[in-house]
């Protein structure tokens, strides 16, 4: 994706991926990378912040003789994600309005 990700958008993506199903760091990184060239060292602070804010929680699950850390979305996380999706929708519409000359502008169609 050619547009830089804001921290807010990155949070939205991480929350969305984890909402689909509980996931671990590697899988999460791969999922996010499908749309943005983020590095692992970008995602770690995002995960940490989301956990600190109680939007995600983690648990360890045994995998091939070691513990793998899984992330799970909390109720607060789902609420926050709904808010972020609403914001994204608004943001998308206002960008589309100018970029693709769609929707209603205050000044009518040009």
């Amino acid at each position: 994706m050619g547009f830089p990700l804001s921290a807010q958008l990155l949070d939205s993506l991480v929350l969305s991926v984890v909402e689909r199903s509980d996931t671990y760091g590697y899988e999460l990184t791969k999922n996010i990378r499908d749309c943005a060239p983020v590095s692992e060292s970008t995602l770690y602070p995002v995960l940490r912040r989301l956990m600190k804010n109680g939007l995600l929680e983690s648990y360890d699950k045994e995998y091939m003789g070691r513990n793998r850390r899984y992330y799970h979305i909390t109720e607060n996380g789902k609420v926050a994600l709904r808010g972020l999706r609403r914001d994204w929708e608004e943001h998308k519409q206002s960008v589309e309005m100018i970029l693709n000359n769609r929707g209603e502008s205050h000044y009518g169609q040009i």
């Binding site: 671990y24 760091g25 590697y26 995960l47």
Partner: peptide, 11 residues
């Protein structure tokens, strides 16, 4: 940090 990066590196 090690639990995150450790996981990542192992995977």
């Amino acid at each position: 940090a090690m639990s995150f990066y450790g996981d990542f590196i192992m995977d």
